[in-house]
Simulated assay, not measured.
Amino acid sequence: MADRAEHSTDLPECPSAQGSGLLPQELRAWMVMLAAVGAVEQRLRSVVKERLAVSHDEFLVLCLLAEQPGEGLRMSRVAELLGRPKTRLTYQVACLQHAGLVDRRSVCGDKRGVEVTLTDKARLLLQETSGALASTVAEALAHVVGPDQREAMYGLLPQGVDAEATTAPTPAPRRGA
């Protein structure tokens, strides 16, 4: 932890965090966030390949499914959430199915609908590797996100939200509820 705090003070000033350019606060914050995501993805790719023997994009599919305990997701929803073409997702899911990490099944009452679920093998593998993967994410973020970058990213939060107290997004109320 001490290394993380020490490391972030060594970061160069974030040009996007300055606010002296042409971009509004939200776009500056978005640029900082993209840089942070890129740093995490770069470090995570090799760890995911080594620990899980899957590609980064296949790992993202596994992560989405891992957040659906006891349920699966429609292929169209996975594609939407990941911002991937359905044809590319079909290939990735086929690779995961071949590795024994996901199951596919038709959605009852919808001839074209396909739902994907994690296998027990995938659940165990994710449980075994999640600590190392989470550490990789934290280390990558600590390396690129310092006080200036953090302040810039707060610009993406809605007005009136205390950025220091925000730990998880509040679910939106359901319609009709």
Rank of each mutant, 00 (worst) to 15 (best):
D110S: 09
L124Y: 00
D120H: 12
T119V: 05
G113A: 03
S106D: 13
H98G: 12
G100T: 01
G109M: 09
R105F: 15
H98S: 15
G100K: 06
V102E: 06
L118F: 10
R105I: 01
L125S: 12
G109K: 14
T117L: 13
R123W: 00
C95K: 03
S130V: 09
L118N: 13
L125H: 05
L118K: 11
A99V: 11
T117H: 12
A122I: 03
D103C: 12
H98C: 11
G109T: 10
D120E: 15
G113H: 07
T129Q: 15
Q97A: 14
V102Y: 12
V107R: 01
R123T: 02
L96M: 09
V114E: 14
V102N: 03
D120F: 04
A99I: 05
T117C: 10
V107P: 00
E115P: 02
T119F: 11
Q97R: 15
L101D: 04
R123P: 00
E128G: 09
R104G: 04
C95N: 02
E128T: 13
R105N: 09
E128P: 15
G109I: 10
L125V: 01
V107E: 01
V116D: 11
V102H: 10
G100M: 03
L126H: 10
G109Q: 11
T119C: 14
E115A: 04
R105G: 11
A122W: 10
G113L: 06
C95Q: 03
G100F: 03
R112N: 12
Q97T: 15
R104W: 10
C95E: 06
V114L: 08
V102T: 08
L126Y: 09
G113F: 04
G109S: 07
T129I: 01
E128V: 13
V102L: 04
A99F: 15
S130D: 09
L125Q: 09
R105D: 09
K111S: 15
L96F: 04
V114G: 08
L118P: 08
V114H: 02
V114M: 08
Q97H: 14
C108R: 13
V116L: 08
A99E: 11
L118M: 13
D120R: 13
L118C: 10
V107G: 00
K111Y: 07
H98D: 14
K121S: 07
T129P: 05
V107H: 00
